[in-house]
Design a protein around this nucleic acid. Sequence first.
DNA 1: CTGACCTACAACCAAATGGTTGTAGGTGAT
DNA 2: ATCACCTACAACCATTTGGTTGTAGGTCAG
Lengths: 125, 125
Amino acid sequence: MVVGDEAADRLFHALADATRRDILWRSVEGELSVSRLAEPYPMSFAAVQKHVAVLERAGLVTKARRGREQRVRTEPDAVARARQALDHLGSLWRGRVDRMAGLLAGAAESASESTHGEEGTERWA
Amino acid sequence: MVVGDEAADRLFHALADATRRDILWRSVEGELSVSRLAEPYPMSFAAVQKHVAVLERAGLVTKARRGREQRVRTEPDAVARARQALDHLGSLWRGRVDRMAGLLAGAAESASESTHGEEGTERWA
DNA sequence: CTGACCTACAACCAAATGGTTGTAGGTGAT
DNA sequence: ATCACCTACAACCATTTGGTTGTAGGTCAG
């Protein structure tokens, strides 16, 4: 593990399963109990429980006791973090294109710091 | 697999590993050969080869023969797709908040189609 | 042609994943 | 108190994953 970002590992891993994404989708629309969430899926309740646990460890959802059931709520900050990561990747790519365009154009503005490298910035914000 | 979106599975799974993210990051900055990419990591060349294969199956990178080596290039469209997916999730969440705010405010603009449900839209675009 | 290098792929292995069933602890209603 | 329900968690199993080594095919330089 060269870059060692456990949080991003958990985040993307949690998103890398259709059932979990579906759970997340449905949790966005309203807080549901775990058993209510489990109903549509062709698997045991325990399996869904595990999926929710994965989402929870990734910080994508939180559980809150509401009487005897436990309601699952999405945590939008985590989603925003994942988006930010991909945004950053996109900006890197755009930066590369800009740099190449700059080379082709003859490197007019050589003093610009935005193309300097940016090695010090955190990779995942 | 309730929603059955294999592409999203592969996409997020590919992103769910620090080494693969690092490879992707470095590939954005410039096309490198597989062996050049493999150099920094404390694992065998074959292991890195497998990581690149995972990124390739996810559509995140493509390989192009350049003489005897094979240069790895990032495919920005796939990154954009992943971002779109998370954007959609974010917009769903925002929509829910708006809907709740609307309920609290007394549902002034009831004719708005933006809060109607949107069940027909593809989940991953 | 030979040797060095880059790549591809198979075989194998330990560990993690995704699923199951079973058991047990709380909570609410009767 | 009892019953029904929701949840948590352990034990277990098949498959996948991430890593290894080894073998083999191309491609460039000498």
